[in-house]
Design a protein around this nucleic acid. Structure first.
Lengths: 157, 157
DNA sequence: CATTCATTCCCATGTTATCCCATGATCACC
DNA sequence: GGTGATCATGGGATAACATGGGAATGAATG
């Protein structure tokens, strides 16, 4: 189980702790770092979340181009400089940093939204609004997603 | 946990000591040299920082690769000349050399900025300015980073 | 040889985050 | 319908970390 699926709304206690959904934790169980990586989205009022492996991939992808453009350098700089490692405690909770909460407008509840390889954390109300927006747009635009061919057998994911 | 992530602002005491963020130290824990390597940045008013392993990689790249242009080879030469090993004390603090501090305009606080494989040390105000610049640009340009394919299963982190 | 300065280690402190235990709630299973 | 297990949640205790100052060491200087 590697994908982040579904949406979970959990409470934020007065210490700023939130439970990471158990299925999300299970998706990250095989990693050495027992926690998530989170950074402020630059496209919306939410927190981007992923596993350390995804960060690793980002860093490898970034250095792959030695001729990478200024924008891409900016991008990686923003991500890595802003990303925090949030280890979860024995109960599976992380401590949400103040500025991340502020950026997403989160106060006493957080919505964990699965995005496949990554996920996002939203203020629940805000996400509900956005979600119906997206759904409405999809109804009109009918976007398509080109499928990659199946990977050779034996490669999980 | 190998990447340098997030940004930490720590104080510089009157002796010139700064705590290296604990997570950065953890990223370097598996290395024989218990400290960081630092040199003056060519691209900005900051200090470049990394682990000894990254220096090793730089030297190898410079030797037998055309991945680096002539200019870049010059750069690596300069880097090695300017780089110094800053071991941390039992509390995890390094002593910032005068000229490095001057180059970055650091007086009584230093911002450790994660860059993935490396990190930078900035005067906090200066970094804040640069950071909001980049963020603004990213918002406009909406840059994308082509992801390398996932590594074969079983290779975590 | 005494002084000055820089460097390193050692210990003390407050703040913050981490752990540990307890309680409910939900769900699955028998 | 009862019974465990898993999971989310709450609060008090504990350890980790950043930070400050002092003592020991050693090198350069007068």
């Amino acid at each position: 189980m590697r994908l982040f699926l579904s949406t979970f709304v959990n409470k934020v206690d007065k210490k700023g702790r939130v439970s990471v959904p158990a299925t999300f934790r299970a998706s990250l169980a095989d990693q050495p770092f027992t926690g998530i990586v989170a950074y402020r989205s630059f496209t919306g009022a939410c927190i981007e979340g992923c596993g350390m492996d995804f960060m690793q991939r980002l860093s490898e992808s970034a250095q792959h181009f030695d001729a990478y453009s200024a924008e891409q350098e900016d991008l990686t700089a923003l991500i890595f400089a802003d990303a925090r490692q949030l280890a979860w405690d024995p109960e599976g909770r992380i401590l949400l940093p103040e500025d991340l909460m502020a950026h997403a407008g989160i106060a006493d509840a957080a919505a964990f939204v699965g995005k496949g390889q990554t996920f996002q954390i939203w203020e629940p109300q805000a996400y509900r609004a956005i979600e119906s927006d997206i759904r409405a747009r999809a109804l009109k635009a009918r976007p398509t997603l080109p499928l990659k061919p199946r990977p050779p057998a034996g490669e999980a994911q």
